[in-house]
Design a protein around this nucleic acid. Structure first.
Lengths: 354, 354
DNA sequence: TCGTATATGTTGTGAGCCACAACAAAACTA
DNA sequence: TAGTTTTGTTGTGGCTCACAACATATACGA
């Protein structure tokens, strides 16, 4: 890649992640010369990606530096099909949600239905003044590298080509990935785990427990793209099966339904906390993350008895796990939209062509 | 970093990983122009890092291209202190072992002893014609980012400053890291997992089971540098304790001593294979690696009944684990020397200053 | 209110480094 | 031996960055 392209990407990515930044701050952050930053910002401006605004007085001496920020009309679409609802969101080039549409389903939707609905909703978005650059889809299942949904058990989709048809229907470049993996990236870049290079994101939803990983500041997808599935790791010798048919796993022992329908809620919650701690211990020993971010009903479980969770975790993990931070999701309920949008912005941020 | 520096690094790293390469192949591999490669190789030559040799006839038409290779006299020292032996090796800039010295201990050595011994052995190495650039230490324990050995339980070392004193005693830049993590990188770059971006390396030694990870082509160290400790993940409800005092872990259930001293070896091996499969299932579900490399007595266990290991693994893991390859270490017994040397070469390979 | 210090934008120059083209060299092929 | 193919070699041009000199805009103290 070109030097120029790399530097344009560096600047735009900084603005994407850190929000409005003065030119002098950009110069300090990138190590590039004042004059170079001026030239790069000018290029990004004429590409319609950023805008310069009046300098904000900051009380220091010296000539004030204009504030550069991403343009709010540059956006992508984030799509998240679930069994009971389709969420289509418009997300701007600073990670903020502009608009979200939720379309409920009375029964599990077919892929065609979801694609057609999404295309229509996007047509609606286009009435606005946004420049829509692409689409990112958060899939509750396994997606292969060509955008084919290999297996989404709860949706009962298998080997469904998805990004291709959706891209054709909308004329927009489209990518797809596992939802929990995207949630992990979202929490890392904009949420509770901001700047924490090694984190595990665990989400408790209606259909089970999904997880995603960030390691060394990058999403950890694994060989076939389903790393992070802590829900299917065994934490008990029980024979209770999870959604994938595996016995005694975290997902089998910890579920929202069991919690809701329990006669003794407090006792059930306590038991589930203990199993959750065992699962986290496995992740702590094997991955040594700095932080675990809990979303969905797992954050409720955390709130129920944080001390118990930590004590049980310490018992089952190697000592350095005391450094492990446990935090609730900070982006809820928009993690997946933010993560999917991040994926859709990725090609632009990686290589800004003049 | 400079464009020139980056390109010099690219070329040198290619030679390090792929061995002797013709200038035309370098041009193809890097995408750089013929003339640029000529200039880069000339720079590396005058730095004494590479040499050009007679072109090898390859039967094709056209002017033959000189073969560039790393100079065999550029080397680093790899150090591996264990409870019963200290191994100090000289490794060349193509990952090959030039010389290895093993110094046995009758009792667990103290850090000072190891440092003094290592320094003496390196003095011996210096009698040769090698240019020694640095030292890499593979530690059977946890090393912090400043090179202090936080905890090496089997050596009974705690909070021992190590790289500092060794560097002072030898005058060489020194770095240290967990042994299993280095083994994982070695197998990825030069061994059974060559080119496999997501792999788990598991080593069965006298003192227990250690593990290291490579994810996305990079070592996965985790927050405090001890990711990969699959040995301390629970695989049984048994109360047998492992070396860290945790019950029912892989290390507690699978050990060389138990295997050696068993009255019915075959039965014990079979049981251990089943526990190993459970441990691998955890890793498969959580990390989704493409390959598991087994070293030490675990490769013996693999050889004992590969089919059983795979069957048990399939039962306990999500389906895509059928893509998971299981292989014995290809570098044994030099994994740690190769990995530690790789760490010692890293600063040079990352930035070649003219 | 004015001058000074400080910080930053602006402009022009120079240097580094790469791609490319033209030519030379060294193999293979018929 | 002449033609073909591939690659080294050399010189040129262009891109992009750093830097210096100058201009501009603020804060602060007299």
């Amino acid at each position: 890649m070109d030097v120029r392209t790399a530097n344009l990407s560096t600047v735009l990515t900084h603005l994407y992640l850190n929000g409005p930044t003065s030119r002098s701050q950009l110069s300090a952050a990138t190590g590039l010369n004042r004059s170079t930053i001026a030239s790069l910002v000018s290029d990004l401006d004429s590409l319609g990606l950023v805008e310069e605004n009046e300098p904000r007085p900051n009380g220091t001496a010296g000539r004030p530096s204009p504030v550069v920020s991403t343009r709010p009309d540059v956006a992508v679409v984030a799509v998240n099909p679930e069994i009971d609802v389709l969420t289509v969101s418009l997300v701007a080039l600073d990670g903020t949600l502009i608009q979200g549409v939720e379309h409920p389903f009375s029964k599990i939707p077919a892929p065609d239905e979801v694609i057609a609905l999404t295309a229509s909703i996007i047509k609606g978005f286009r009435a606005g003044r946004q420049r829509i650059l692409g689409i990112g889809v958060a899939v509750p299942g396994l997606v292969d590298s060509e955008g084919v949904i290999a297996d989404a058990p709860h949706l009962r989709w298998k080997n469904v080509p998805f990004t291709g048809p959706l891209s054709e229907a909308t004329g927009l470049p489209t990518s797809a990935a596992n939802d929990a993996g995207l949630g992990a990236v979202a929490e890392y870049k904009f949420g509770a785990g901001r700047g924490v290079g090694n984190l595990l994101y665990l989400n408790g939803g209606a259909s089970g427990i999904g997880g995603g990983l960030v390691a060394g500041g990058k999403p950890l997808r694994g060989g076939s793209g389903f790393a992070g599935e802590l829900g299917h790791v065994r934490v008990s010798s029980s024979n209770t099966l999870d959604s994938a048919g595996l016995p005694g796993t975290l997902e089998a022992m910890v579920s929202r339904d069991a919690l809701m329908s329990a006669s003794n809620k407090d006792e059930t919650a306590t038991r589930q906390v203990k199993y959750l701690a065992r699962g986290l211990a496995v992740a702590a020993n094997l991955l040594n993350p700095e932080m675990v971010v809990l979303g969905g009903f797992l954050s409720t479980l955390l709130a129920h008895n944080p001390m118990l969770l930590r004590c049980e975790l310490e018992r089952a993990a190697l000592r350095p796990s005391s450094h492990l931070e446990i935090a609730p999701s900070a982006l809820e309920p928009n993690q997946l939209a933010v993560g999917a949008a991040d994926m859709a912005f990725a090609p632009l941020l990686a290589e800004v062509y003049v």
